[in-house]
């Protein structure tokens, strides 16, 4: 198949939630090294709430929209508005489309990336989730081949992007005040973003088969 149905596929969003919940302690731990150590807890809380509200009958777009709503109205922090806007604009990008194929997916990624850039004040290289999201989006757009091959390329670029934050100095957010001391640790947002994109890709790949 060249794509997956939009309808009845909100379970993919629940799979993303499960991944975040499973990594709650890890995300808080890496956040705690240069931030305040709440990233995993807050993310897990929001994603768990969203998972409870998502029904298998919902479309992928509805699932993303539900997740966005919870993050923006219930979670707060930095991740509430950043991921909230990202998922809202991703949901809008696929909207009522019946199928999500490579073209729709690329639009979705680009919309998510635009949303994060517009609400935050970060650029690539600032040690934020954009260091995962931007190269991942670019890899998907520029890789030839079928949907699955492009998703695999996106996953690899996301992981590479996440790892690239280890040697960066944080330039925005709480850890930016540490300067040189922020080097040597993965960015928690870049790490959770990698989990989100990889779980999303895996969910689609399984359903393409």
């Amino acid at each position: 198949m060249s794509g997956i149905r939009n309808a009845n596929n909100a379970a993919i969003v629940r799979e993303i939630a499960e991944c975040i919940i499973a990594n709650k302690a890890y995300l808080s731990e890496i956040d705690g090294r240069i931030g305040d150590g709440d990233h995993g807890n807050n993310m897990a809380k929001g994603f768990a709430m969203a998972a409870e509200r998502i029904s298998d009958d919902d479309s992928l777009a509805d699932g993303l929209s539900t997740l966005s709503g919870v993050l923006m109205t219930e979670i707060g922090g930095s991740m509430g508005p950043l991921y909230g806007m990202m998922f809202e604009d991703m949901a809008e990008a696929i909207g009522d489309e019946s199928m999500v194929d490579a073209t729709q997916f690329q639009r979705m990624l680009e919309a998510g990336q635009e949303a994060v850039i517009s609400i935050g004040s970060a650029h690539v290289g600032d040690k934020t989730l954009l260091d995962t999201l931007c190269p991942a989006t670019e890899a998907f757009a520029n890789t030839p081949g079928n949907f699955q091959a492009r998703l695999e390329a996106m996953k690899a670029a996301a992981a590479e992007g996440r790892d690239s934050t280890r040697d960066m100095i944080a330039r925005v957010g709480r850890s930016s005040r540490l300067g040189e001391r922020s080097r040597g640790v993965l960015d928690a947002g870049a790490t959770s973003c990698c989990m989100i994109l990889c779980t999303l890709a895996d969910g689609i790949i399984r359903r393409l088969a």
Partner: peptide, 10 residues
């Protein structure tokens, strides 16, 4: 907000 975390926009 949550512990050490900004309140929501709402």
């Amino acid at each position: 907000g949550e512990l050490f975390s900004s309140p929501t926009a709402k």
